[in-house]
Simulated assay, not measured.
Amino acid sequence: MPAGRERVANAFDKARGRHRPAVIPYFPLGYPSLEDSLEVIKALAQAGADLIELGIPFSDPLADGPTIQHASQLALAQGMNVSAALELVVRLREQGLEQPFLFMSYLNPLLAYGLEAFIRDAGRVGVDGLIIPDLPLEESLPVRRMCQAHDLAFVPLIPPNLAEARIAQIAQGATGFLYLVSVTGVTGARDSLPPDLGAFIRRVRQITPLPLAVGFGIASPDQVQTLYPLADGVIVGSALIQAVAKSVRPAEAAADFLGSLLHAVNGVGYA
Rank of each mutant, 00 (worst) to 15 (best):
A3M: 13
R7Y: 06
R7E: 05
D13W: 06
R16Q: 08
H19Y: 13
P21G: 10
V23M: 07
I24F: 12
P28N: 14
Y31W: 14
Y31K: 05
E35L: 13
S37P: 04
V40D: 01
L44I: 09
G48A: 07
D50F: 05
L54Q: 11
G55M: 15
I56T: 10
P57T: 10
F58V: 05
S59Y: 11
A63H: 09
D64M: 06
G65R: 12
P66A: 09
H70G: 10
H70A: 15
G79Q: 06
A85K: 01
L88W: 03
L88T: 14
R93D: 02
E94C: 04
G96V: 11
F101R: 01
F103G: 04
M104L: 15
S105E: 03
L110Q: 02
L111T: 12
A117M: 08
A117H: 14
I119P: 06
R124Q: 15
V127T: 11
I132D: 00
I132L: 13
L137F: 15
P142K: 01
H150Q: 13
H150D: 13
H150P: 10
D151G: 02
A153H: 05
A153K: 08
F154E: 00
A163D: 10
E164P: 01
A165H: 05
A174D: 07
G176Y: 11
F177K: 08
Y179P: 01
T184V: 15
D191V: 10
D191G: 14
D191H: 14
S192P: 00
S192K: 15
L193D: 05
D196W: 07
G198Y: 11
I201A: 01
R205N: 10
R205C: 08
Q206D: 15
I207A: 09
I207D: 05
T208F: 04
L210Q: 05
L210M: 05
P211V: 11
A213C: 08
V214W: 10
F216E: 04
F216L: 13
G217D: 03
P221F: 10
V224K: 02
Q225S: 12
A239L: 06
V244H: 05
R249A: 14
R249T: 13
P250W: 07
A251V: 07
A255H: 12
D256R: 14
D256P: 00
L261A: 06
N266Q: 14
